[in-house]
């Protein structure tokens, strides 16, 4: 746990072995996309926590997106709990999109209904 920021830098460079589960080469790590959506699922699981969000892409097409986070082991240090998200929550998410254009990404941060911000680190 606990050193996501170091790990992210490392995987972005793809030069240091600070990767536990997989590299982040599949994401556009230089691009941040922000969108509003409604949570449909929150998986507090290893090796990654996941949130599923109904939201529109840039063309306005709505879809269910999968946003990957680091592990619960890391997230608890950033204030996350297994109860942080629940289906129906209206949230604003920022994520690094998949390079292949599919409806998924690596979460950067989420703004909760009470305006609290949780970061994926």
């Amino acid at each position: 746990m606990r050193i996501k920021s170091v790990a992210m830098l490392a995987v972005a460079a793809l030069a240091v072995p600070a990767i536990a589960h997989h590299s982040f080469a599949m994401f556009d790590m230089k691009k941040d996309v922000t969108a509003e959506g409604v949570v449909t699922d929150f998986r507090w699981t290893n090796p990654h926590a996941w949130m599923h969000v109904d939201m529109a892409d840039k063309s306005g097409t709505r879809a269910n997106w999968a946003l990957e986070m680091t592990s619960p082991n890391n997230l608890v240090l950033s204030g996350w709990r297994r109860s942080s998200l629940k289906p129906g929550d209206k949230v604003t998410v920022t994520y690094h999109p998949l390079l292949n254009g599919k409806t998924g990404g690596s979460l950067v941060k989420v703004v909760l209904p009470d305006s609290k911000i949780l970061e994926n680190k």
Binding site: M1, R2, H21, H22, R43, T45, N46, P47, H48, W50, A66, E68, S71, P72, N73, V76
Partner: peptide
Amino acid sequence: AQDQLEFICAQNDRN
């Protein structure tokens, strides 16, 4: 001040 936590990779491996 912290302890190790459980980490079961097979729980939800989607990669």
